Simulated scan of single mutants.
Amino acid sequence: MGLVTKLMADKKPSAPLPEGLHPVSESDPTAKALGFHQDAKQTDFILYPERKEPGSKNQFCKHCAQFTKINESWGKCNIISSGVVSTEGWCSAWSQRT
């Protein structure tokens, strides 16, 4: 199953993928190095055990300082620039928006 199809099957986005843009592939070298997933629930908790801690429950791309919202479901990341990221995504570069 393709990434977009899987995302659509797992959770119906509230806004469509922006026209002409594609989601960041989780196999993108930068995304892979940062443990990025379009769905934060798919985080490798063995590699990133801090993601399971109660204080990290709101760590999603939509709350990250590196995220710029495009619509309710998608945005651009200043670090992973090969496409758009889901508002419900996560990577190890996450930092609280101030």
Rank of each mutant, 00 (worst) to 15 (best):
I79H: 03
K57F: 13
S27M: 13
R51N: 03
T43G: 01
K62Y: 04
C61T: 01
K69M: 12
T98D: 09
K52S: 14
S95Y: 06
P29I: 01
K76H: 14
P54W: 05
E26S: 14
Q38N: 15
S27N: 14
S56N: 11
S25A: 13
E50H: 12
C77Q: 02
D44V: 01
K69S: 14
K41S: 10
S92H: 10
P23Y: 02
E88R: 09
K76I: 12
D28W: 08
R97M: 04
A9Y: 04
E19W: 03
S25R: 09
V24N: 05
G89V: 05
D39R: 07
A33Q: 10
K32Y: 10
P49F: 02
K69E: 14
C77H: 02
N71T: 05
S81H: 02
G55E: 13
F67M: 02
E72P: 00
K52L: 12
F45W: 01
K69W: 01
V85S: 06
V84Q: 03
E19M: 13
D28M: 07
N71G: 08
K11I: 03
H37T: 12
A33L: 07
K62D: 03
H37Y: 09
C61Y: 03
W74P: 03
G35F: 04
V84F: 04
V85I: 15
K62N: 08
S25V: 05
I46C: 00
G83A: 13
V84G: 05
H63Q: 07
T30Y: 02
P54M: 05
F36I: 01
S86D: 07
G20E: 08
I70L: 15
E19D: 15
F60P: 00
S95R: 11
A40C: 06
L17N: 08
C91T: 07
P23N: 02
L3T: 11
S86A: 13
T68F: 01
F60E: 02
W74E: 02
W90S: 00
R97K: 15
L47Y: 03
E26H: 12
F36C: 10
S81F: 00
T87S: 14
P23Q: 02
A65T: 01
T87K: 06
G20K: 07
V24Y: 04
P49Y: 03
K32I: 01
P13I: 11
K57D: 10
T5M: 00
E26I: 14
H63S: 10
D39W: 04
R51C: 01
D39P: 02
K11H: 12
A15N: 08
L17R: 06
A15E: 09
P23G: 04
W74T: 03
K32L: 13
F36S: 08
T30M: 15
H37P: 00
E53R: 05
H22N: 08
A93Q: 09
G20I: 09
E19A: 15
